[in-house]
Amino acid sequence: MMSHAAYVIASYAVAAVTVAALVAWVVGDGRARQRELRALEAAGIRRRSAEAPSGEGK
């Protein structure tokens, strides 16, 4: 039988790990996508809308 404090600590630990993983995923995903966009830009590939200001390229 665990003490009550152990259950409280376990709950906050699970919450901290889950939130940290979620934040790491969102930040990491964003960085990876930005890297890809920069690589494409460096290769001279630009969105059509960046040249012609009307409308969003699909």
Binding site: D29, G30, E36, L37, L40, A43, I45, R46, R47, K58
Partner: peptide, 12 residues
Amino acid sequence: WRRRVTSLRRQA
């Protein structure tokens, strides 16, 4: 961003 990368790659 992900969708832009996909469409840019397709365009390329």
